[in-house]
Design a protein around this nucleic acid. Structure first.
Lengths: 162, 162
DNA sequence: AATATTATGGATATACTATATCCTTAAAGC
DNA sequence: GCTTTAAGGATATAGTATATCCATAATATT
């Protein structure tokens, strides 16, 4: 069970979009070049973010993507779910129902005990992602990325943002 | 990102194996019949449990599987990892290294900030699974499964255990 | 000793998903 | 009118999950 690479791409793209000046957009082409990713396929991830309402888009030259709300209002879970979907990582096929000792037509009053544990773990995973905001990531990067690289990246984004 | 169905199968099989009387074994055939699963493929999941040291096996008629240690010493994470592996659900391909603003040969002193968050969520998922033991599951089932079905299941297992 | 039963592991086949590319369309800026 | 862009459909390729089959060796029963 491994997350799609598009999850990684979407998270990094959102981090970059956080630096786009107000009123401007950054294109798929720019984001693909910056991260060394295939433009056409990255486009699918960005479309997922768009459909989830995390980013806004506009067409034409100088078009592209920008965050639909401030980085302090976008968390990791929203981005991950935009790409991976909201469905639980554990699917219960209710195999307990095949127990040959159960009377025919027997109906359980609770979800399967095994599934409940797995769903609880899934919730813990999502809960962790939900508590980390894009602004937290930006803060971390500000702290950790060397100043010249951080500044250079910002300038690069501003230059490429239409 | 969805867990293999073998995870569900392995968990339910371990729950059943907890009822196998000391010194006896339950075969793949019995476990497959009980859960309505394909015997040959279920066998692969049981082999994973065996390789992980969670169950013990013996050959021949009256052979099969039994828990290698008491249910209070087997947790969900051990079973899940036996089937899914121990690798993190998030793979960092370090795409930050493609940032065109970085000096050539630049080396980061910390793992990617995005990956660290994703790994933290992965750890929360595993941490939840690690805290639930097979004995907890058995306790839950004892509480929730109607007495006659629970008793019937136990009798079925004892009858089939070689 | 012979036979039946079982786990193990390799080989193979099929289905599904992830990855990737291409192309058409419509909108926006120049 | 021309270029650039996102959106989305169609298609191709690779990789993984699911499933089955078979050969082998070990064990119990007869």
């Amino acid at each position: 069970m491994i997350l799609k690479s598009q999850v990684e791409w979407a998270l990094h793209c959102c981090a970059i979009l956080a630096s786009v000046p107000p009123g401007r957009y950054l294109s798929t082409k720019a984001l693909a070049e910056f991260h060394g990713l295939p433009k056409e396929y990255l486009s699918k991830a960005l479309q997922s973010l768009s459909q989830a309402g995390i980013v806004e888009t506009t067409l034409g030259p100088s078009g592209g993507y920008r965050l639909a709300r401030p980085p302090s209002e976008v968390n990791f879970l929203q981005i991950v779910e935009a790409v991976e979907g909201k469905a639980s990582t554990f699917v219960c096929t209710n195999i307990r129902a095949n127990n040959p000792c159960r009377p025919a037509g027997f109906c359980d009053d609770k979800p399967c005990a095994v599934a409940r544990v797995m769903w609880q773990a899934d919730a813990a995973w999502r809960g962790t992602l939900e508590k980390v905001w894009l602004s937290d990531l930006v803060d971390t990067l500000t702290d950790e990325v060397p100043d010249d690289i951080w500044k250079g990246t910002y300038d690069w984004v501003v230059k490429r943002a239409g």
